[in-house]
């Protein structure tokens, strides 16, 4: 039974509250998923430590070519941020596509990752940006790459009863680089994706220097299309290359069948289409960057 609701004003205070509650207190940010899980008794906590009043976590900053998103930054703020729109428009687009405005106005980008939903939209883009999370605990600060944030399906590697993810950060895409995000869903709002794909490319003349592709939900978290990425390294910028990458991406994907969001067969059938669209859009973006 929930006994306390804390609203600390600093990271240090939040960590002390976690420590003092010996694993019975849990971090809450937007809470849009957490409160439902709590009501359904899927998670238990005696106290919530709400980090949304911590000023330093409300910022989106760019310094030394690195963009940092605080843990209290909402999807709406990320989607509307000029910094993010300019440097990582795919992330803005992904943030815009989550749930509804009422959700996006509270739910945080970091929470979208920590919640470890397999189809989290922003996480897919953060995966190709090779973002890393700043994880605070009594033991100090460490940086965890995004792909290590998932411990299983709907299971985060972060323990929110002792650890606090304060920020997520990624290197700003450079000239000749571009990102893109595409999403397949059954309606335009209030829908988890049937599939979503993010791409980031770096171009060198008429070739791909390299490319990163992430797909969901085809595994516990965003899944990188390793085979396709390998092939794309140094490959010519042609329709054939893109087509080949789209097919190779399937080798890394293991989608499940859902009665609600599409069968495995359908997801396998359309994944290459989304990969193609994401890659093509990322290339177009890179040309203008």
């Amino acid at each position: 039974m929930l006994q306390e609701y804390y609203l600390p004003h600093s990271v240090a205070d939040a960590l002390i509250l976690l420590k003092n509650n010996n694993g019975q207190a849990r971090i809450i940010a937007g809470g849009t998923d957490l409160v439902i899980d709590h009501q359904a008794e899927k998670i238990k906590a005696e106290a919530f430590v709400d980090i949304s009043n911590i000023e330093e976590l409300k910022k989106i900053e760019c310094a030394d070519g690195v963009i940092t998103i605080g843990a209290a930054v909402t999807h709406s703020e990320a989607a509307r941020s000029e910094l993010i729109q300019k440097h990582a428009p795919a992330l803005a687009m992904a943030a815009r596509s989550v749930g509804s405005l009422q959700i996006r106005n509270i739910a945080t980008v970091v929470g979208n990752v920590v919640n470890a939903q397999p189809a989290a939209d922003t996480a897919v883009v953060l995966a190709v940006l090779e973002a890393e999370a700043e994880v605070n605990s009594a033991a100090g600060v460490k940086y965890v790459p995004l792909y290590k944030m998932y411990a299983g399906v709907c299971k985060s590697a972060v323990d929110s009863t002792s650890q606090l993810v304060t920020r997520i950060r990624f290197i700003v895409p450079q000239r000749n680089q571009g990102t893109a995000f595409v999403r397949l869903c059954q309606r335009k709002a209030l829908a988890l994706p049937m599939l979503n794909v993010a791409a980031m490319v770096s171009l060198q003349g008429d070739r791909f220097a390299w490319a990163r592709l992430a797909m969901a939900p085809v595994g516990p978290g965003p899944v990188r299309a390793i085979e396709a990425e390998k092939m794309l390294r140094g490959a010519p910028l042609t329709d054939e290359t893109v087509e080949k990458a789209a097919q190779l991406a399937l080798e890394s994907a293991n989608p499940r069948s859902s009665m609600v969001r599409g069968s495995r067969e359908y997801r396998i059938g359309v994944l290459p289409v989304l990969v193609k669209r994401a890659l093509t859009a990322a290339v177009a973006r890179a040309h203008t960057n």
Partner: peptide, 24 residues
């Protein structure tokens, strides 16, 4: 938080009041 009937404005922003812990 799936239907919006409970929408209120909190600090200038529309939110689903069924997903907002009162103490928030």
């Amino acid at each position: 938080g799936e239907c919006g009937a409970c929408t209120v404005i909190m600090n200038g922003k529309a939110v689903a009041s069924c997903l907002v812990p009162a103490l928030k």
